[in-house]
Design a protein around this nucleic acid. Structure first.
Lengths: 226, 226
DNA sequence: CGATGTATTGATGTGGATCAAAATAAGTGG
DNA sequence: CCACTTATTTTGATCCACATCAATACATCG
């Protein structure tokens, strides 16, 4: 990565794709660059959406606390992902989830006014935001479908497998994922107990290896046929 | 309603709001006007999205067939609602649900090329689409939450109550909703059997009255405290 | 009055949540 | 390096809301 990796990343980001390089530079220049500490909360659900974030480094979890005390993990964001889209709307809006850094990282941050000023002369920006938003709809729809007619093992296997592709790191022995059971459970809509039991079973079968706070997928194919 | 009610409706529609009257006229003029027969399928999930629809009259159900054979009702659309947003994207995309007219009605229809041609000089159109899309995200998130920590009775009560507000017709005795049990069930993520039993219970308690294919909400407040 | 779709009913079954408690690992500070 | 604290993961027992199944009853309509 170049010393200023943000521009490269920007090119691959859904948000800034399709804009020409000069405009991208302007937009990136208008952002504040913010270091993220592990555990840092960037925005909280139901608070007024004042900022738009583009993740550059590290992972961020997007979650929604629900009445029963549990938390639902909406998704794990990786570099290039964006959140706080809602602040592109002219009408005041609230964040739809809570974003929390899972590890040290970095992000570009625009405030509402700036975003809207940038969007006016660059309609492609709004179009990109629409694409991102529709992708989120598709993601929710898929998850809802899984909840309707997939078993807990299937949901967990999918969640794990998806995580591997999205944010796993290749290692000689397989794909390593830094996540704890509770988060994985919240992502797959399964209880932590069931998660523990299933992971153990898969470990016995040689499909995964686990440490505290991480899972190594040894044989991805051995997961799904359950 | 004026002989040409579509313009009035357009003003209240999320899609065309915020555009000035002249532009609205142009956009509406660019659409084909299509009569809908009950049961008519307007678009099917996973087929290429070639058209954008704005409902003028009647109701349309948006559903997603799932593996197990069931159908999930995503929502019931009412006049002013829009679907097929995905065809605003430049990249070819697929419909995310199947739209079927629940009764005779009418809709404005644009094809992909036209929509995109209209959107270019009118960025507000894309911004409106973004707002609609984000509202869908919120809706899915709420439904997911309900599925996580609300009981079947609660989900059904909410679904019914929401339907009443959105597409019920006031009558001297209460709010009348033309929907059959199976659809209501598919909207609340509850089985038809449970739906039947709960509706009966509520009828005994005087909260609702039911006929075949319709439900009359007599006392909305008597629903939720269950 | 069949015929077809819709709604009801009762009996049965079960997946996975929940609960309480223990075991394990990872700090932390003396 | 050890004793202590705290967070994570595990284990086994229990339970229950709701789906599922198999019929039956009820409307509606040509």
């Amino acid at each position: 990565m170049s010393p200023d990796g943000s521009r490269e990343l920007a090119l691959t980001s859904q948000l800034l794709g399709g804009l020409d390089a000069e405009v991208q530079r302007t937009i990136v220049a208008a952002a504040a660059r913010r270091k993220l500490r592990a555990g840092q909360v960037l925005c909280r659900m139901d608070e007024p959406a004042e900022h738009l974030y583009l993740l550059l480094k590290g992972r961020v979890q997007l979650s929604r606390p629900v009445r029963s005390g549990h938390e639902v993990l909406v998704s794990v964001l990786v570099p290039g992902d964006v959140f706080g889209l809602v602040c592109l709307l002219t009408r005041r809006a609230l964040y739809m989830g809570t974003a929390e850094a899972m590890e040290a990282g970095e992000a570009l941050v625009w405030d509402r006014a700036t975003v809207q000023r940038l969007a006016r002369p660059n309609p492609q920006l709004t179009a990109n935001a629409l694409a991102v938003s529709l992708a989120m709809v598709a993601q929710f729809a898929a998850r809802h479908e899984a909840l309707m007619d997939a078993s807990a093992p299937e949901r967990l296997a999918h969640a794990l497998s998806d995580l591997g592709l999205q944010s796993g790191t290749r290692s000689p022995d397989g794909i390593d994922i830094r996540i704890k059971n509770e988060q994985l459970a919240a992502l797959a809509d399964v209880s932590t107990f069931t998660t523990s039991r299933l992971l153990q079973q898969w470990e016995r079968e040689g499909a995964v290896k686990k440490r505290r706070g991480a899972i190594l997928i040894v044989d991805p194919d051995a997961l799904l046929p359950h």
